[in-house]
């Protein structure tokens, strides 16, 4: 569609404005993280460091931070692998099984996506306490797998519904067992859906705060979001280090997202727009 020059100019200005609104806080975060210790206290605040340094990153990457990072990595990766595996198995049966109760079960999965975590956390906490799992990786992995599974099943189900049935049918006629069909045909064809789901689960788990805050009690078990929240008090007014830590917490998910953006956007919007 052709646009008038004046219209184009207005639209371009709005684009620039939008980019500024979104980027200004990021710019500020990176800028402060590069400022030597006294510069954040300049009044009025300066947008760009006069003497940029990576010193804050060096001092923020201390042993505690590395522990939190490792904990987040272990918990997130375990959750991604378990959720995507269980989610694909369930989604496969949800879309292929001839079972009367299926649509009711799908309804329960959709409903479970909307449960408020804060309202169910106390019974979960008590179960973890009885099972002696508090302050372990397992308490977090179990909680994260459970809360991400409903959305994962939903995303993968939407994806599997769109796969052509012909391939699976002909394989079945050739005598392949359902498990063979699943492994040789469904899994390879589901790759884009699996990637989208894995990215979604990773983004959710990497930033999860409420369960991690409630279930971990020692520094050895803290994950990055909780550790970062602790830093607010510990760093006091060392804003440079706080911002440097924030950048380092954000970078891994941002990197994953940028490489796999295409899959993720398709996965999220498919469910939301098409139902």
């Amino acid at each position: 569609m052709k646009q008038k020059r004046s219209t184009r100019l207005v639209l371009t200005l709005m684009q620039v404005l939008l980019a500024i609104v979104v980027l200004l806080p990021f710019f500020w975060m990176v800028s402060v993280s590069l400022k030597p210790p006294t510069e954040p206290f300049a009044i009025p605040a300066r947008l760009w460091p006069d003497h940029p340094t990576v010193g804050n990153y060096v001092s923020a990457f201390r042993p505690e931070f590395r522990t939190y990072f490792l904990n987040s990595l272990v918990v997130s990766l375990a959750t991604v692998v378990i959720t995507v595996t269980l989610g694909l198995l369930a989604a496969y049966s949800f879309t292929r099984a001839q079972i009367v109760a299926i649509s009711a079960l799908v309804g329960l999965v959709v409903l479970a996506q909307m449960f408020p975590h804060s309202a169910i956390i106390i019974p979960i906490y008590k179960m973890m306490r009885s099972a002696d799992l508090l302050n372990t990786y397992w308490s977090l992995i179990l909680a994260y797998v459970s809360v991400t599974l409903p959305v994962a099943i939903w995303m993968l189900r939407g994806f599997l519904l769109k796969l052509p049935a012909a391939l699976e049918e002909s394989a079945a006629i050739d005598g392949a067992t359902p498990l063979r069909v699943f492994w040789d045909i469904v899994v390879p064809l589901s790759r884009p859906g699996l990637i989208a789901t894995a990215v979604y689960v990773l983004i959710v788990t990497w930033q999860e705060f409420l369960f991690a805050l409630s279930f971990t009690s020692t520094k050895e078990m803290r994950t990055l979001p909780v550790g970062l929240n602790d830093f607010i008090g510990q760093y006091g007014i060392r804003y440079g280090e706080l911002m440097a830590s924030s950048v380092m917490v954000s970078l891994p998910v941002m990197a994953v997202f940028f490489f796999l953006q295409r899959y993720f956007v398709a996965g999220i919007t498919a469910g939301a727009v098409k139902g």
């Binding site: 269980l86 049966s93 099984a97 449960f115 169910i120 979960i124 179960m127 797998v145």
Partner: peptide, 23 residues
């Protein structure tokens, strides 16, 4: 199919639906 559904369904029952009533 029930076997494939079981892990997800059991986990959701124990970790999401039971706590709803637990609350």
């Amino acid at each position: 199919h029930w076997l494939l559904l079981a892990p997800a369904l059991i986990l959701m029952a124990v970790m999401l639906y039971y706590p709803m009533f637990g609350t």
